[in-house]
Computed example of a mutant assay.
Amino acid sequence: MDGAPLDARTALLRADCASCTGLCCVVPAFAASADFAIDKPAGTPCPHLALDSRCRIHDELPQRGFPGCTAFDCLGAGQRVTARFAPRSWRDAPDEVAAAFEEARGLHELLWYVADALARPLPVELRVGLATTYAALDAAVDAGEPAGPWFPRVDPLLRRASDAVRTAWPAARQLRRADLAGADLRGADLRGADLRGALLLGADLTGARLADADLVGADLRGARLAGADLRGALFLTPVQVAAAVGDARTLLPEHLARPGRWRG
Protein backbone atom coordinates (compact mmCIF):
# COMPACT_ATOMS: atom_id res chain seq x y z
CA MET A 1 0.00 0.00 0.00
CA ASP A 2 1.13 3.55 -0.55
CA GLY A 3 2.18 5.53 2.50
CA ALA A 4 -0.21 8.36 3.35
CA PRO A 5 1.38 11.35 5.11
CA LEU A 6 0.80 11.91 8.82
CA ASP A 7 0.00 15.48 7.83
CA ALA A 8 1.44 18.11 5.47
CA ARG A 9 4.65 18.24 7.50
CA THR A 10 5.81 14.83 6.33
CA ALA A 11 5.72 15.67 2.63
CA LEU A 12 9.37 16.74 2.66
CA LEU A 13 10.34 13.64 4.64
CA ARG A 14 9.76 11.21 1.79
CA ALA A 15 12.73 10.27 -0.36
CA ASP A 16 12.39 11.48 -3.95
CA CYS A 17 15.23 9.78 -5.79
CA ALA A 18 14.30 11.52 -9.04
CA SER A 19 15.21 14.85 -7.41
CA CYS A 20 18.48 13.62 -5.89
CA THR A 21 21.95 13.02 -7.31
CA GLY A 22 22.38 9.59 -5.75
CA LEU A 23 23.85 10.82 -2.47
CA CYS A 24 22.97 7.59 -0.65
CA CYS A 25 25.09 5.76 -3.24
CA VAL A 26 28.07 8.04 -2.66
CA VAL A 27 28.28 9.41 0.88
CA PRO A 28 27.92 6.35 3.20
CA ALA A 29 30.63 3.74 3.54
CA PHE A 30 29.83 0.04 3.66
CA ALA A 31 31.81 -3.12 4.17
CA ALA A 32 31.48 -6.43 2.36
CA SER A 33 29.02 -8.47 4.40
CA ALA A 34 25.64 -10.15 4.21
CA ASP A 35 24.20 -6.70 3.50
CA PHE A 36 26.69 -5.52 0.86
CA ALA A 37 28.58 -7.51 -1.74
CA ILE A 38 31.57 -5.15 -1.80
CA ASP A 39 33.57 -2.69 0.25
CA LYS A 40 32.86 0.96 -0.52
CA PRO A 41 34.70 3.81 1.19
CA ALA A 42 32.77 6.89 2.31
CA GLY A 43 32.49 9.53 -0.39
CA THR A 44 33.16 7.06 -3.19
CA PRO A 45 30.35 6.38 -5.67
CA CYS A 46 29.07 2.82 -5.80
CA PRO A 47 30.13 1.15 -9.07
CA HIS A 48 26.46 0.53 -9.82
CA LEU A 49 25.65 4.27 -9.78
CA ALA A 50 24.98 5.44 -13.34
CA LEU A 51 25.86 8.86 -14.73
CA ASP A 52 22.19 9.88 -14.45
CA SER A 53 22.41 9.26 -10.66
CA ARG A 54 20.29 6.12 -10.83
CA CYS A 55 21.15 2.66 -9.55
CA ARG A 56 21.75 0.22 -12.39
CA ILE A 57 20.64 -2.78 -10.29
CA HIS A 58 17.88 -1.16 -8.23
CA ASP A 59 15.28 -3.81 -9.13
CA GLU A 60 17.55 -6.69 -8.15
CA LEU A 61 19.52 -5.37 -5.17
CA PRO A 62 18.92 -8.37 -2.85
CA GLN A 63 19.71 -10.87 -5.57
CA ARG A 64 22.94 -9.04 -6.40
CA GLY A 65 24.10 -9.02 -2.77
CA PHE A 66 22.95 -5.55 -1.68
CA PRO A 67 19.96 -6.07 0.65
CA GLY A 68 21.39 -3.34 2.89
CA CYS A 69 20.56 -0.77 0.23
CA THR A 70 16.87 -1.65 0.39
CA ALA A 71 16.82 -0.82 4.10
CA PHE A 72 18.28 2.66 3.65
CA ASP A 73 16.05 5.74 3.57
CA CYS A 74 17.31 9.31 3.65
CA LEU A 75 13.87 10.57 4.77
CA GLY A 76 13.99 13.25 2.09
CA ALA A 77 17.40 14.65 3.00
CA GLY A 78 18.90 13.71 -0.37
CA GLN A 79 16.70 15.83 -2.56
CA ARG A 80 16.86 18.71 -0.11
CA VAL A 81 20.67 18.82 -0.09
CA THR A 82 20.71 18.37 -3.86
CA ALA A 83 18.43 21.39 -4.27
CA ARG A 84 20.49 23.48 -1.85
CA PHE A 85 23.71 22.95 -3.77
CA ALA A 86 22.29 23.03 -7.31
CA PRO A 87 23.63 23.39 -9.91
CA ARG A 88 26.67 21.97 -8.12
CA SER A 89 26.68 18.32 -7.04
CA TRP A 90 28.85 15.95 -5.02
CA ARG A 91 31.12 15.76 -8.05
CA ASP A 92 31.93 19.47 -7.70
CA ALA A 93 32.15 19.72 -3.90
CA PRO A 94 32.35 16.15 -2.53
CA ASP A 95 33.35 16.93 1.05
CA GLU A 96 30.93 19.81 1.45
CA VAL A 97 27.96 17.94 0.00
CA ALA A 98 28.74 14.76 1.95
CA ALA A 99 28.87 16.64 5.26
CA ALA A 100 25.63 18.45 4.44
CA PHE A 101 23.89 15.18 3.58
CA GLU A 102 24.92 13.47 6.81
CA GLU A 103 23.74 16.38 8.95
CA ALA A 104 20.51 16.83 7.00
CA ARG A 105 19.66 13.17 7.34
CA GLY A 106 20.06 13.36 11.12
CA LEU A 107 17.84 16.42 11.26
CA HIS A 108 15.24 14.79 9.01
CA GLU A 109 15.13 11.80 11.35
CA LEU A 110 14.26 14.18 14.19
CA LEU A 111 11.70 15.90 11.98
CA TRP A 112 10.11 12.50 11.35
CA TYR A 113 9.80 11.81 15.07
CA VAL A 114 8.37 15.25 15.82
CA ALA A 115 5.87 14.97 12.95
CA ASP A 116 4.75 11.61 14.33
CA ALA A 117 4.28 13.11 17.79
CA LEU A 118 2.30 16.03 16.37
CA ALA A 119 -0.15 13.57 14.80
CA ARG A 120 -1.09 12.29 18.28
CA PRO A 121 -3.66 13.70 20.72
CA LEU A 122 -1.39 15.55 23.14
CA PRO A 123 -1.74 18.36 25.68
CA VAL A 124 -1.82 21.80 24.06
CA GLU A 125 1.37 23.00 25.73
CA LEU A 126 3.29 19.98 24.47
CA ARG A 127 1.90 20.38 20.96
CA VAL A 128 3.02 24.00 20.89
CA GLY A 129 6.51 23.00 21.96
CA LEU A 130 6.68 20.28 19.32
CA ALA A 131 5.41 22.58 16.56
CA THR A 132 7.96 25.23 17.50
CA THR A 133 10.70 22.62 17.52
CA TYR A 134 9.62 21.30 14.13
CA ALA A 135 9.91 24.77 12.62
CA ALA A 136 13.34 25.28 14.20
CA LEU A 137 14.59 21.91 12.93
CA ASP A 138 13.30 22.69 9.45
CA ALA A 139 15.20 25.99 9.49
CA ALA A 140 18.30 24.20 10.79
CA VAL A 141 18.31 21.95 7.72
CA ASP A 142 18.25 24.97 5.41
CA ALA A 143 20.99 26.62 7.45
CA GLY A 144 23.19 23.52 7.28
CA GLU A 145 23.40 23.17 11.05
CA PRO A 146 24.94 20.04 12.60
CA ALA A 147 22.44 17.47 13.81
CA GLY A 148 24.29 16.36 16.96
CA PRO A 149 23.34 19.23 19.28
CA TRP A 150 19.68 18.86 18.36
CA PHE A 151 19.21 15.31 19.64
CA PRO A 152 19.43 16.17 23.37
CA ARG A 153 17.21 19.19 22.76
CA VAL A 154 14.46 17.25 21.03
CA ASP A 155 14.56 14.00 23.00
CA PRO A 156 12.84 15.35 26.16
CA LEU A 157 9.87 16.46 24.06
CA LEU A 158 9.68 13.07 22.37
CA ARG A 159 9.80 11.33 25.75
CA ARG A 160 6.98 13.53 27.05
CA ALA A 161 4.93 12.75 23.97
CA SER A 162 5.62 9.04 24.39
CA ASP A 163 4.62 9.12 28.06
CA ALA A 164 1.41 10.98 27.23
CA VAL A 165 0.42 8.47 24.55
CA ARG A 166 1.37 5.39 26.56
CA THR A 167 -0.61 6.38 29.67
CA ALA A 168 -3.47 4.50 28.02
CA TRP A 169 -1.51 1.30 28.74
CA PRO A 170 -0.65 1.33 32.48
CA ALA A 171 0.37 -2.33 32.43
CA ALA A 172 2.62 -1.95 29.37
CA ARG A 173 5.97 -3.69 29.41
CA GLN A 174 9.13 -1.69 30.12
CA LEU A 175 11.74 -3.04 27.71
CA ARG A 176 13.94 -0.04 27.06
CA ARG A 177 17.31 -1.17 25.62
CA ALA A 178 16.37 -4.79 26.31
CA ASP A 179 18.36 -7.47 24.50
CA LEU A 180 15.61 -9.37 22.69
CA ALA A 181 17.70 -10.57 19.78
CA GLY A 182 16.13 -13.76 18.44
CA ALA A 183 13.46 -13.72 21.15
CA ASP A 184 10.23 -15.64 20.70
CA LEU A 185 7.62 -12.89 20.96
CA ARG A 186 4.94 -14.54 18.86
CA GLY A 187 1.54 -13.11 19.70
CA ALA A 188 3.02 -10.85 22.39
CA ASP A 189 0.91 -7.97 23.65
CA LEU A 190 3.40 -5.08 23.39
CA ARG A 191 0.84 -2.31 23.15
CA GLY A 192 2.20 0.79 24.84
CA ALA A 193 5.52 -0.92 25.57
CA ASP A 194 8.70 1.10 25.99
CA LEU A 195 10.99 -0.49 23.40
CA ARG A 196 13.36 2.46 22.99
CA GLY A 197 16.72 1.20 21.85
CA ALA A 198 15.67 -2.44 22.23
CA LEU A 199 17.63 -5.05 20.29
CA LEU A 200 15.02 -7.00 18.34
CA LEU A 201 17.44 -8.38 15.77
CA GLY A 202 15.89 -11.52 14.31
CA ALA A 203 13.16 -11.60 16.96
CA ASP A 204 9.96 -13.45 16.10
CA LEU A 205 7.12 -10.93 16.47
CA THR A 206 4.64 -12.94 14.43
CA GLY A 207 1.15 -11.79 15.36
CA ALA A 208 2.43 -9.36 18.01
CA ARG A 209 0.49 -6.19 18.81
CA LEU A 210 2.51 -2.98 19.02
CA ALA A 211 -0.01 -0.13 19.04
CA ASP A 212 1.47 2.91 20.85
CA ALA A 213 4.75 1.06 21.49
CA ASP A 214 7.71 3.47 21.55
CA LEU A 215 10.17 2.19 18.94
CA VAL A 216 12.76 4.99 18.85
CA GLY A 217 16.08 3.38 18.00
CA ALA A 218 14.74 -0.18 18.20
CA ASP A 219 16.78 -2.54 16.02
CA LEU A 220 14.30 -4.47 13.87
CA ARG A 221 16.77 -5.96 11.41
CA GLY A 222 15.51 -9.35 10.38
CA ALA A 223 12.64 -9.22 12.89
CA ARG A 224 9.75 -11.37 11.74
CA LEU A 225 6.57 -9.29 11.60
CA ALA A 226 4.21 -11.70 9.81
CA GLY A 227 0.68 -10.83 10.88
CA ALA A 228 1.94 -8.28 13.42
CA ASP A 229 -0.14 -5.17 14.11
CA LEU A 230 2.04 -2.05 14.14
CA ARG A 231 -0.77 0.43 13.55
CA GLY A 232 -0.20 3.38 15.85
CA ALA A 233 3.34 2.33 16.77
CA LEU A 234 5.27 5.36 18.00
CA PHE A 235 8.21 6.73 16.02
CA LEU A 236 8.42 3.77 13.62
CA THR A 237 10.54 4.76 10.61
CA PRO A 238 10.73 3.52 7.01
CA VAL A 239 14.25 2.28 7.75
CA GLN A 240 13.00 0.01 10.55
CA VAL A 241 10.19 -1.32 8.38
CA ALA A 242 12.50 -2.02 5.45
CA ALA A 243 14.95 -3.86 7.70
CA ALA A 244 12.27 -6.21 9.06
CA VAL A 245 10.48 -9.13 7.40
CA GLY A 246 6.73 -8.82 7.14
CA ASP A 247 4.02 -10.25 4.93
CA ALA A 248 0.65 -9.37 3.43
CA ARG A 249 -0.98 -9.67 6.86
CA THR A 250 1.36 -7.21 8.59
CA LEU A 251 -0.54 -4.06 9.56
CA LEU A 252 1.44 -0.83 9.29
CA PRO A 253 0.63 2.79 10.15
CA GLU A 254 -1.05 4.56 7.24
CA HIS A 255 1.94 6.79 6.55
CA LEU A 256 4.36 3.91 6.00
CA ALA A 257 4.63 1.99 2.74
CA ARG A 258 4.79 -1.80 2.68
CA PRO A 259 8.14 -2.97 1.25
CA GLY A 260 7.72 -4.60 -2.13
CA ARG A 261 9.70 -7.64 -1.04
CA TRP A 262 7.16 -8.49 1.69
CA ARG A 263 5.23 -11.38 0.24
CA GLY A 264 2.91 -14.16 1.30
Results as ranks from 00 to 15, higher is better:
6 L>E: 04
6 L>Q: 11
6 L>C: 04
13 L>D: 01
14 R>T: 09
21 T>A: 05
24 C>P: 02
30 F>C: 02
30 F>E: 06
32 A>R: 14
35 D>V: 00
35 D>C: 00
36 F>K: 10
36 F>A: 01
39 D>H: 05
53 S>I: 00
54 R>H: 07
58 H>Y: 05
58 H>W: 05
64 R>L: 10
69 C>P: 13
69 C>N: 03
71 A>P: 02
72 F>V: 15
74 C>Y: 03
76 G>I: 09
76 G>N: 08
77 A>V: 15
80 R>M: 13
82 T>Q: 10
84 R>Q: 06
85 F>G: 10
85 F>N: 03
92 D>F: 14
94 P>Q: 08
96 E>Y: 01
99 A>V: 04
100 A>D: 05
106 G>E: 08
112 W>Q: 02
113 Y>M: 10
114 V>G: 07
116 D>K: 04
117 A>E: 08
118 L>M: 05
123 P>G: 07
130 L>P: 13
131 A>V: 03
133 T>L: 13
136 A>R: 09
138 D>E: 14
142 D>H: 10
146 P>A: 14
149 P>Y: 01
154 V>L: 13
155 D>N: 12
160 R>Q: 09
163 D>N: 08
164 A>M: 00
164 A>H: 06
168 A>W: 11
168 A>M: 06
168 A>N: 01
169 W>E: 00
170 P>Q: 05
173 R>Y: 04
176 R>H: 12
177 R>A: 15
185 L>V: 08
185 L>R: 09
187 G>R: 09
190 L>K: 00
196 R>T: 13
197 G>P: 08
203 A>T: 04
204 D>Q: 14
204 D>K: 02
208 A>V: 04
213 A>F: 14
217 G>P: 11
219 D>C: 11
222 G>Q: 08
225 L>M: 08
228 A>K: 00
244 A>M: 03
248 A>K: 01
248 A>F: 00
248 A>L: 08
252 L>H: 03
257 A>G: 02
262 W>K: 00
263 R>E: 03
